[in-house]
Amino acid sequence: MTSNNPQVVNLTQLTIPQLDGLRENIDADIEYLTHSFEQLEIALKKLQNSLNSVEYLGKIKAESQMAMVPLTQSLYVNGEIKLPTKLIIDIGTGYYIEKDVKEAKDYFKRKMDFISRQLDKFKPALNDKISLKKGIEDVIQMKIQAILSLQKQPTSPQNKEIHAK
């Protein structure tokens, strides 16, 4: 049976190679969390842009309106919005749903709230990993300084006799 409780390890009892391996693992975790955090921020910005577009479409009163339609992030074509009260929303993985303007706004706001909560969860985890990495680096420095100070100590007269034999 596995336990969900993290195992507590005294860093000062680990060797420098063990600490270095642990630091590399923490670096990988930090990189993963940072990448995930950035991806969530990008998704949040895209949802905000979609919400802004829906709000703009909600203000259109005419039956037909000319618009620039994005095919990619950098390629747009002329298009005509026939009925701005009904929108087709991309909900991911190739699925689309039809919503009116109010429902579309609610959908994007819910998604943005969800992603914001996820971002809030990542911040403490990322800060904890960064603090742990700093602690590991401090212990490594302490151990290196201890080794260097031992190497600089002059040998006692008894040690000189032993080395001379």
Rank of each mutant, 00 (worst) to 15 (best):
R23S: 14
D27V: 07
H163G: 04
M112R: 05
Q65N: 15
S116F: 04
I89V: 14
K59D: 06
Q153F: 09
T85Y: 06
I60F: 01
E103R: 02
Q158W: 13
I88C: 05
A164P: 03
N5G: 04
D138M: 00
K45G: 11
K109T: 15
S156K: 03
Q145M: 11
Q18Y: 03
V54F: 06
A104Y: 01
R110V: 08
T93C: 04
I30P: 02
T34M: 09
A125Y: 08
L83F: 10
S3L: 09
E31C: 07
K102H: 05
K61F: 05
L11K: 03
Y107T: 01
G94I: 04
D106M: 09
D106G: 07
L44T: 00
Q118K: 14
P124M: 04
K105G: 04
L71P: 05
Y107W: 11
K105T: 13
V9Q: 10
I136Q: 01
Q118T: 00
S156I: 01
I162H: 01
S116L: 09
I60K: 00
N5I: 13
T2E: 08
G79Y: 02
I97G: 05
K134P: 01
E137M: 02
L126S: 00
L14T: 08
Y32M: 05
M68G: 09
P124F: 02
E55V: 07
P124R: 00
Q158P: 01
T85L: 08
L40Q: 12
Y95E: 15
S64G: 11
R110T: 12
T12E: 12
M68N: 13
N4Y: 09
S156E: 06
I30E: 06
G58S: 04
A125F: 11
T34Q: 14
T15M: 09
M112D: 01
A146D: 05
L57V: 05
N5V: 07
L132D: 02
T15K: 14
K134C: 03
T155A: 04
Y32Q: 06
S64P: 02
R110K: 12
K160Y: 11
I162W: 07
I115H: 02
S36M: 12
D90Q: 06
K160H: 13
Q118Y: 02
Q7A: 11
V101T: 03
E24R: 13
G94K: 02
S74W: 04
Q48G: 12
Y32E: 13
L11R: 00
Q158H: 13
V139T: 01
N25Y: 11
Q158R: 14
K46M: 10
R110Y: 04
P154E: 13
F37I: 00
Q151H: 14
I42H: 10
Q73R: 07
S74L: 06
E80K: 15
F108I: 01
E98M: 15
I144S: 02
I147Q: 14
T2A: 07
V139P: 01
E137Q: 06
Q141M: 09
N127C: 02
N159A: 08
H163F: 13
K152P: 00
D27G: 06
L132Q: 14
D100C: 04
L87Q: 11
L47C: 11
I136C: 03
I136L: 05
S3K: 08
D27Q: 09
L119H: 01
K99F: 12
H163D: 13
R117H: 15
A125K: 07
N52G: 07
M142D: 05
Q153T: 11
K109Q: 15
A62I: 02
N159F: 03
I144N: 08
T93G: 03
S50V: 13
L126Y: 07
